[in-house]
């Protein structure tokens, strides 16, 4: 899976938690939390969605890699199966 495919699937996970998400308006290098107005419950739902979608475990110590869309994609690219 290349980075574009990961990005597309990751945006799908984000949209499932934040239906108001407009992918075109999401700055890839800025805080997802600030842009999407998400809290810890939303974030946990996103982590669960990413884990299921990409078939990876995401330990709490790795949450810092999910700060922006770019860092999230880079992190998943290094861990995703297939």
């Amino acid at each position: 899976m290349n980075k574009e495919e990961i990005r597309t699937k990751a945006l799908g996970v984000l949209a499932a938690v934040v239906p108001e998400l407009e992918p075109a308006e999401l700055a890839p290098d800025k805080s997802l939390r600030d842009q999407l107005d998400i809290d810890s419950v939303d974030f946990l739902n996103i982590v669960v969605g990413l884990a299921k979608t990409f078939g990876v475990d995401i330990p709490e110590t790795d949450y810092r890699h999910l700060y922006t869309l770019d860092s999230l994609v880079a992190y998943l690219a290094g861990r995703a199966k297939g």
Binding site: S40, V41, L44, V47, V48, D57, P59, E60
Partner: peptide, 16 residues
Amino acid sequence: ATANAKLPVTERLLAG
């Protein structure tokens, strides 16, 4: 922290 380290992400707990 101890509990979450043993749990899969789907069962992880929030402090809340």
